[in-house]
Write a protein that binds this DNA or RNA. Structure first.
Lengths: 225, 225
DNA sequence: TTCCTGTATCTTGCATACGGACTGGAGATC
DNA sequence: GATCTCCAGTCCGTATGCAAGATACAGGAA
């Protein structure tokens, strides 16, 4: 018998969650903006129940903050927050890369090259948002091949914030994308050659430079929407 | 004016979540056992809404599995699961210890000594469960002092499973508690002396020995309740 | 003017109702 | 006896209603 498995239609909760997540990550909403369950449910054309459940999930991902009896707000990171997030992200990624290298080196390398190609494609004919998305996909590769789903879960738990920061706090510096691409190339090379220490230092530089830029924007007080 | 701040009464969701979490962790329920929202809501004396929300949170902690239209089940780890969990836990703890040592060494050391004393107290006049709880507290110390709340969140995301495995899959081997205590003492000593490498290796041995024991129980097919 | 206070209006927390989907077993059919 | 069909029971997904807390603002008192 052929494989006839049908995929379940997504639940409303899943749809709403995804939609809201995208709205936050893609900066359709401002950081700190007030959300109302009722307003959202009306805008989305569903009842409050799935909206409420989706918001609860987003809270656990750190994308919104729910204050009892008061309201729900898009998250608003402090400089400290961003710093800790970057450190944490570096820890996860470096560990994931280690696991990839020892367990699924070939597969991971192939996937990284694919992701790299996709990034280059967006550079040629895509928006900054397309590049940001491709960047996200690249870093997710580490976790798809690391062979430890807990590591991947942990990353998924913060990836929303990481992606949101990329969108909200990035300023389009001249030549930034080129430098970013160059670093990604270096990472793949170091991975291919098995140079773990190099890989770590490139990754560290890569992430910490992003932190620097975010911190500048935060200090400037401009929490762009 | 004196400090009159009143603490908010916990929401029903939080109460239900905690209660269910305890029930799973303390092995009041069997691994894989079927749960029904309605049955739980009746047993707990609340409506389905907070139960449902609490179950959703527990799912994100990996303590229950929700199958749409079918039912909710207490998690049932595979041997692979447990292995990955142990590896992940080792990663988190070792990173947290690093951060503790570089950022809040004195405070962390003091807290570790307190936790150690509490463990010894339960050894004198407490149940195995008391010891297990004190053990959990000891490991949480790392994350309370590591200065990175994301690291702590990640740990909290798996600590339920870790604690549940401790309760469900541990067999009371002769002298096990003594060996465990000895290892904890060694860890504190190594931390106090700043010997990171030793600390790592003790922690690794400590966690992997637990994994060994769990794997044995899982292979034996006895998923105790 | 400044401060306090009552109230209108917002928010979320929780309970409840209904319908679709799934499961397991009794009975019919071959 | 084996298999299929139908149906009742159970579960979750979603919508809706009501209660209670938080907030903002108008209006009165000092």
């Amino acid at each position: 018998m052929p494989d006839l498995k049908v995929e379940q239609p997504k639940s409303l909760v899943a749809i709403v969650e995804e939609r809201l997540r995208d709205a936050i990550v893609d900066a359709e909403m401002r950081l700190g903006e007030t959300l109302s369950e009722e307003a959202l449910s009306e805008a989305l054309g569903v009842s409050r129940t799935p909206v409420r459940e989706a918001l609860a999930r987003l809270q656990l991902q750190g994308l919104v903050t729910i204050v009892p009896k008061k309201g729900t707000f898009v998250f608003a990171p402090t400089e400290e927050d961003v710093s800790e997030l970057c450190v944490f992200r570096y820890m996860l990624e470096t560990q994931a890369l280690r696991e990839c290298m020892s367990k699924a080196r070939a597969a991971a390398l192939a996937a990284m090259n694919d992701a790299l190609a996709a990034m280059e494609a967006t550079q040629a004919g895509g928006t900054r948002r397309d590049y940001a998305r491709a960047d996200t996909v690249f870093h997710e590769v580490f976790f798809q091949h690391c062979g430890n789903r807990y590591l991947g879960n942990a990353y998924r738990g913060v990836s929303g914030r990481v992606a949101a920061l990329r969108t909200h706090l990035s300023v389009p510096l001249e030549g930034e994308q080129e430098r970013s691409m160059a670093e990604h190339h270096l990472m793949v090379e170091a991975f291919a050659a098995g140079r773990l220490a190099d890989l770590d230092s490139i990754l560290h530089r890569h992430i910490m430079r992003a932190w620097d830029a975010y911190a500048d924007v935060l200090r400037s007080g401009e929490v762009s929407g």
